[in-house]
Design a protein around this nucleic acid. Structure first.
Ligand SMILES: [Zn+2]
Ligand SMILES: [Zn+2]
Ligand SMILES: [Zn+2]
Ligand SMILES: [Zn+2]
Lengths: 136, 136
DNA sequence: CGCAATCTTGTAATGAGATAACATCACCTA
DNA sequence: TAGGTGATGTTATCTCATTACAAGATTGCG
């Protein structure tokens, strides 16, 4: 099975639990927050959560936010995690908006090429205020 | 004093020690690695290092690499940490190349504006192989 | 000078994020 | 049924970062 064809029904028990926790959250969750939420479902140790997260990230269903040490469910239809994803993280309400932008992806590839850098993964995380939190 | 006019001579003892450690390193260092290197210079506890790092980052002399939980001395002449900085991190030799790109900065600002996102800070970290490590 | 305000430093303890090591279990297949 | 593979469970440990409190050092008045 390809890394991008996973549906929810393919997931193992722990993966499903973690996926559900992230999907039903408004914002990103840390591994330990997920663990706390799933204590009653048999989740006992951090490693159980991290293992599930590793797989979910590998399948492209979940993204890791490097600047937050947290994880978020992908809400981007047909998301290709190999492409350059832009995360806009609200510092007030913690909600995350995930978008792609062809021009920016192209720009980053061009920059890497011009520096002869063999690009493997791009992290673009923007911090600021989402529209709803700009009360002005 | 403005946040961007700090010279090395303005720094306190601990700030200078940490700055020197980062400046003489080929790649990024974690706070605890810096601590270990400075044990003989009176540095005893993590907080001493983190306090110095906080100031150095504030002054724009040091950048934090979110995807590594590590810090690197700025080697960009006239670096304005308010601008969009692109870090290219080699996954083989751990060296970091720091560049700016006007087109990319403009692109990011445009994306944020189009989403009505009040941009505060941009994190752009590219992982891959530097030219020297592409032996192919 | 004397004193207060402020900044920097020192130290211990704790919180938060992530992984190593090892044992066990479920499932598929030869 | 024996063996391989992947998922799980459990403990301990490691790395990264902050809280809380105390003690010096510095500056700027009155
Ligand atoms: Zn996505
Ligand atoms: Zn918001
Ligand atoms: Zn810089
Ligand atoms: Zn390299």
């Amino acid at each position: 099975m390809s890394a991008h064809s996973h549906t929810h029904s393919d997931l193992t028990k722990n993966q499903s639990l973690v996926m559900d926790a992230l999907s039903s959250s408004e914002g990103p969750l840390s591994a330990y927050t997920i663990l706390d939420q799933l204590r009653d479902n048999g989740m006992r140790a951090p490693l159980q959560v991290y293992r599930a997260l590793d797989k979910l990230v590998e399948y492209g269903l979940v993204h890791r936010l490097e600047s937050l040490n947290a994880f978020v469910a992908c809400r981007h239809p047909n998301c290709d995690s190999n492409k350059t994803i832009i995360f806009m993280i609200c510092e007030a309400c913690d909600k995350v908006n995930e978008i792609t932008d062809a021009a920016l992806a192209k720009n980053i590839n061009k920059i890497a090429a011009s520096e002869k850098f063999a690009l493997n993964k791009s992290t673009v995380e923007l911090r600021g205020l989402c529209p709803a939190c700009q009360t002005d």
